[in-house]
């Protein structure tokens, strides 16, 4: 590491403070390097407590807890992709449609084309990633706002899924794939394990690789990223491809769980995924993301939906609740942002 030695002190005497203690460092790492907020954990605890009381005794059981985790897994995987997108100051509204589209493509591949099951798995992920790459290319190269591009993809992907299946779910998947949705290694639902594995890898990628860092820097100051040699366009294509690929992966998990490719799956998942991401502490305006926070955010969504189900609130009202939570979370995000930024 060649470093210029400059004998003069052009900016006056150096003031370097002592390194913070290990505990402080851990906290700083957790809350500032990632955008994780203690508040989201608190929100999850409060939500759980409320639901425990409201839906006593059905909520607080091991089987219900696993239920929630199972229900959260597809959403969680999608929200993890969304975390990268939102960190880069983008948005991906096509995730729900891509999930359905990918699931359908995978199912069709193994059923109609008689492809072996690993190909089916790959088909799901690749279909989603390709559609995401299309999103990214249009956003980065054609400079169309992400909101419009992904909204368009929302319609296109859903339409394609419906066209391919003529609106009828494609039933029947090979056992190895079904195991991904219904298996219970060590008694834990496989989708939960897949979610946790995805989250772990995504966390390392977001925080410890250039890809993750650049995604956040693009959201922070795109001009700076560009000036410092970050290939912003390529990064954007990759970010949306990642989001699409994870949506495809979620589509695979969902299809495996229900043993069918459902062209209507994942409807309004974009709303829930964005909400989970923002509730988890990722900055809506880009610059900082947190995978841990997103997983907690997804759990909050899961607890909310599950609890409301147990209490007997209609799913129509659940939509209202999720929408309200999103707006509330963004409002909190804004408050934090206005006081947290510069001086």
């Amino acid at each position: 590491m060649p470093i210029l030695s400059i004998p003069k002190e052009p900016f006056g005497p150096a003031v370097m403070t002592a390194a913070p203690s290990a505990a402080t460092r851990w906290r700083v790492r957790l809350t500032s390097a990632t955008a994780f907020r203690i508040e989201s954990l608190l929100a999850l605890a409060v939500m759980t407590a409320v639901m425990t009381v409201a839906a006593w005794p059905y909520f607080l059981t091991v089987s219900n807890a696993l239920n929630i985790l199972l229900a959260t897994s597809t959403l969680g995987v999608i929200a993890i992709g969304m975390t990268f997108v939102i960190s880069s100051a983008g948005i991906d509204l096509s995730v729900g449609s891509l999930m359905a589209f990918s699931g359908v493509v995978g199912c069709l591949a193994v059923n109609n084309l008689d492809a072996p099951w690993p190909v089916g798995i790959l088909a799901c992920v690749i279909a989603g990633a390709l559609a995401g790459a299309v999103n990214g290319s249009l956003i980065a190269r054609a400079a169309i706002p992400a909101f419009i591009v992904t909204l368009g993809m929302l319609g296109v992907a859903r339409g394609v899924a419906l066209v391919l299946t003529k609106g009828v779910p494609v039933y029947g998947l090979p056992d190895p794939i079904v195991y991904l949705g219904q298996g219970r290694p060590w008694g834990i639902p496989a989708p939960v394990i897949l979610l946790l594995a995805t989250a772990l890898i995504a966390h390392v990628v977001l925080i410890h690789t250039r890809f993750g860092l650049y995604a956040q820097v693009i959201g922070d100051n795109e001009g700076a990223a560009r000036a410092m040699g970050v290939r912003v366009e390529r990064m954007k294509v990759l970010i949306y491809a990642l989001s699409g690929g994870l949506a495809g992966f979620a589509g695979l998990i969902f299809a495996a769980r229900v043993n069918a490719g459902d062209p209507t799956a994942g409807s309004s998942y974009e709303l829930t995924a964005v909400t989970a991401t923002i509730v988890g502490g990722t900055n809506l305006f880009g610059g900082r993301g947190s995978i841990l926070g997103t997983v907690i955010g997804a759990l909050i969504m899961g607890v909310l939906q599950n609890g409301l189900n147990l209490i007997g609130v209609s799913s129509y009202y659940q939509q209202i609740a999720i929408g309200a939570v999103l707006v509330f979370a963004v409002w909190l995000n804004r408050l934090n942002r206005s006081e947290g930024r510069r001086r």
């Binding site: 390097a33 930024r341 510069r342």
Partner: peptide
């Protein structure tokens, strides 16, 4: 051309 949410070290080594 600084990323305001990144720390000083990340900014100095931004891109490298």
């Amino acid at each position: 051309a600084l990323a305001e949410m990144r720390d000083v070290a990340s900014n100095i080594f931004l891109g490298r």
